[in-house]
Amino acid sequence: MSDMETPEFRGRGGEGRSGPGGGERGAGGERGERGERGKGPGGGKGGFFRRRKTCKLCSEKVDYVDYKNTKLLLAFIPERAKILPRRMFGTCAPCQRKVRTAILRARQMALIPYSTE
């Protein structure tokens, strides 16, 4: 299957994600990142360095996001199986759109759950 060609991403969500229930790191961190762009470290409240997230799909050169490639898609859905916003993974807009449609298709074909209990 196409699993062989496309690279698989390690872990669910990867390191770039601050976690859906990441409490302290949640919205504040987001603001910090935006503020940091010009000022460098120290712009956020916490004052620790946070590197810019890059689009994984672009850097891994995935041209076609296949809905059948569950390994790839599972990297983009957390435990609760929600599709997370772009800011969590740092995917670029075209890639996020591709991932979204692929996830929706995979859900329809029962390859990926709609939600978990």
Binding site: R107, M109, A110, I112, Y114
Partner: peptide, 13 residues
């Protein structure tokens, strides 16, 4: 299957 579809827990793809 990721979820049951009308009592089917698995299916042939």
């Amino acid at each position: 299957l990721a979820y049951t579809i009308g009592k089917n827990r698995e299916g042939s793809y």
